[in-house]
Design a binder for these strands. Structure first.
Length: 437
RNA sequence: GACCCCUUCGUCUAGCGGUUAGGACACGUCCCUUUCACGGAUGCGACAGGAGUUCGAUUCUCCUAGGGGUCGCCA
């Protein structure tokens, strides 16, 4: 039975790098039928915040990463906050004391005596990595105030929580020999490691807190991404599933996951491609699903949805025009209000030719006689009105679009007319005629 | 400075001794089209450099360069 964990430190937002680390651990657990544990490494009292911890849980849940043991989930190896496990650490420190592997400095800090022998790290991604006997100073494991250091608690908890595998960022590789030294001192067997490549900024520098696209909540949840799209993209940054195509469902990703295929070279983050994935997932949504996903963005933009069926059809009609949910309000605002603004060039074009008013009136006359109001009948009415005035439908369509939406681009005119209804269509044409004199 | 990891189109990557070096994103062009898009077609575009091993290196070895990481009483 495999047991893996994601062990974030609540000092800030959930990062894409951390998210992907969590993702790979989760994928491995689900693939192997193992257990995915969430352990909060809040040993740095000065920098940890409850807000950050909640934000990280929120981000993980948004991505669809559920944990079998951890905060809110319970489990047999808790507590899952390191700040609540001091007694366990004290007991483990006593073991090292008994074995003569630690000593206390004048300051009160406790240091672990390195074995100072060569140590081999067996890694699923990097292979066997040899580290020569170290010349570094012995490692501090406990601060003078009695609190413990990352390397120590990380190892102790991996032993206590019976971890079998550890997927973590490659930035930890250089310190792994220290962890193995500790495992050995405790007489425990180290887990199997898999150090995954880092995610870099587009310019190749290390991605950190302030960089664009680094925070899951700020850059993705609030920017109109769908979690399944981000999930999919992140998986492919550092891993190539052996299959055709790149748009892969959660289930497919789980089935295909193989740690041996994880790359060992860092990858740069490409927001363009991440958005492309989002667009792909967006277009695969049903009208109802799309409305469900973008409702909060429409309301946040200040528009009120009074008819879910119309709203769903409206957002569905523009789904292939956007790649982010945040772009949708600007495309559909006129479905939710009658006092929509006219784009500058739209009004200019309407006023450009006197016959425009004639054509619009003709279309309105046609619409008025319709007893059946559907996309098809609206379309026919437009074509007939155009034909009656010896112009191509293509000449009338833009005018109607301008009148009904105030915009120069959007869904088919017949779709707009159908959705806003016959009465509103006639009213909007009348209003527009009044504006262009 | 020491140690560790890495190096194929701009980006993500396929390739695991012999390929016209393939795909995706981005970008250009064309088609479709009432707009904007979608979609379809097509084009542009890479093996960091140098030695070796070999009949033959993108692929194996070494060196150099470049990038990233680690050397905390941060995690």
């Amino acid at each position: 039975m495999t047991r893996v964990r994601f062990a974030p430190s609540p000092t800030g937002d959930l990062h894409v790098g951390g998210a992907r680390t969590a993702l790979f651990n989760w994928l491995f657990a689900r693939k192997t039928g193992g257990t995915f544990i969430l352990r909060v490494e809040d040993t740095d009292g000065a920098r940890n915040t409850e807000e950050a911890a909640q934000g990280i849980l929120k981000g993980l849940r948004w991505l669809g990463l559920d944990w079998d043991e951890g905060p809110d989930a319970g489990g047999d190896y808790g507590p899952y906050f390191q700040s609540q496990r001091k007694a366990i650490y004290d007991a483990y420190l006593a073991k090292l004391e008994a074995a003569g592997r630690v000593y206390t400095e004048d300051s009160g800090a406790v240091r672990f005596k390195f074995s100072r022998t060569p140590i081999k790290v067996h890694d699923l991604v990097c292979g066997d990595v040899m580290f020569a006997a170290t010349e570094e100073p012995d490692m501090t494991v406990r601060r003078p105030d009695g609190s413990y250091i990352f390397h120590f608690v990380n190892v102790v908890d991996d032993i206590e929580m019976k971890m079998t595998h550890v997927f973590r960022g490659e930035d930890h590789l250089s310190n792994t020999w220290k962890h193995i030294d500790l495992f050995n001192a405790f007489g425990a067997t180290p887990p199997t490691y898999a150090h995954i490549p880092l995610i870099l900024n587009p310019d190749g520098t290390k991605m950190s807190k302030r960089d664009e696209g680094s925070a899951v909540e700020k850059s993705y949840m609030n920017e109109g991404f769908l979690p399944e799209a981000v999930f999919n993209y992140l998986c492919l940054l550092g891993w190539t599933p052996r299959t055709e195509g790149e748009k892969l469902s959660r289930e497919a990703l789980v089935n295909l996951f193989d740690p041996a295929e994880i790359h060992n070279a860092n990858a740069r983050f490409d927001m363009h491609k991440c958005q492309w994935f989002n667009a792909q997932y967006l277009r695969a949504l049903s009208a109802e699903e799309l409305l469900f996903s973008c409702r909060r963005f429409i309301e946040k933009a200040g528009y009120t949805i009074t008819d879910d069926a119309v709203a769903a059809a409206a957002v569905y009609s523009v789904k292939e025009k956007v790649s982010l949910l945040t772009e949708i309000p600007a495309w559909v605002h006129y479905f939710f209000r009658s006092d929509y603004p006219y784009e500058d060039d739209v009004m200019a074009k309407l006023k450009a030719k006197p016959e425009n008013a004639t054509l619009l009136k003709a279309a309105a006359d046609g619409f008025r006689t319709l007893t059946d109001w559907s996309e098809t009948t609206v379309q026919s009415a437009i074509e007939e009105a155009a034909k009656a005035h010896s112009v191509k439908p293509g000449a009338l369509m833009p005018l109607l679009r301008f009148a009904l939406s105030g915009q120069s681009r959007g869904p088919g005119v017949n779709t707009i007319g159908h959705l806003i209804g016959q009465e509103s269509t006639l009213q909007r044409i009348e209003n527009t005629l009044g504006l262009i004199g």
